[in-house]
Design a protein around this nucleic acid. Structure first.
Lengths: 141, 141
DNA sequence: ACTTATATGTTGCATATACAACACGGAGAC
DNA sequence: GTCTCCGTGTTGTATATGCAACATATAAGT
């Protein structure tokens, strides 16, 4: 019985991924703290910078985030003046937001390097593989 | 510039891990919904079942969770009668909690199988590797 | 035109999460 | 003994997160 529970604790994929996520996100968030960003909002800004004006739903699909979560994150960011809504659906980054995310790049690089050192090149490859599998999970059959 | 932003969006390890986490945790949480559990609390119950009475700090170390997060999760679970505090520091699972986590096992198995199918055996191995690297990140040097 | 389905955004509610600041108690250092 | 440090737990505050329910608008079918 106890042994079964131990096995489950060690095998649970969601449990393992949560542990990885807490540690890695913590490293980025602490590094980004001086910029006032957390990794979630930094990701949204980078997406808007990379792909231009987008709808909340499109952001949600890219980031695998519920539309309500996107909605509220955008609210917070709009209050900070980092993004603005161009019409009923679309959001774009502001000049302030652009400057912010660009200024935070060194901190991002530092966190990225720290985690790369923890993961090693095979670990970094593994993350990419898992991301692809998750994003393409409905693609075939 | 845009191309640089696209590269960052695709390379950011925290961003990728958050995406993986949202998808995988969602699969488990939806499956466990009928039991009234979410994967975080299920993980805590499994740990208490596997390793017996533990302090909040010890749970936090195992799950890489801040002590305040553990504290509030334990509060919620105690209100539900799933765990109880045996003294100032230690927490143990109750009979109700034990029955609950055991009864939720089929749902957990189903979610686990779903995610295994998405990840494949190499993906499952990759998760284990990343978990080990994260947990041992301070071990040497 | 009416109806139905689909896509979008918002809000109520609840959980999960962490940092900072605090309180407490034990273990050593002196 | 006293003081300091460390481990532990709690609370204030804020973000992140998703589901359910709702409101809208657009498109498609009849």
């Amino acid at each position: 019985m106890d042994q079964i529970a131990i096995d489950i604790a060690k095998q649970c994929l969601a449990g393992q991924i949560k542990i990885i996520s807490r540690v890695v996100v913590g490293i980025y968030d602490r590094e980004l703290k001086s910029s006032g960003l957390k990794i979630t909002q930094a990701s949204i800004l980078v997406h808007l910078l990379a792909y231009g004006s987008r709808s909340g739903s499109a952001l949600g699909r890219s980031l695998q985030m519920d539309k309500s979560t996107v909605s509220r994150n955008i609210d917070r960011m709009e209050r900070n003046g980092w993004v603005k809504k161009t019409d009923a659906e679309n959001v774009e980054i502001t000049e302030t937001g652009r400057e912010l995310i660009l200024s935070a790049r060194p901190q991002w690089e530092k966190a990225q390097k720290t985690v790369c050192n923890i993961f090693g090149s095979d670990g970094v490859e593994a993350v990419k593989m898992l991301t692809d599998k998750v994003k393409n999970r409905n693609k075939r059959k």
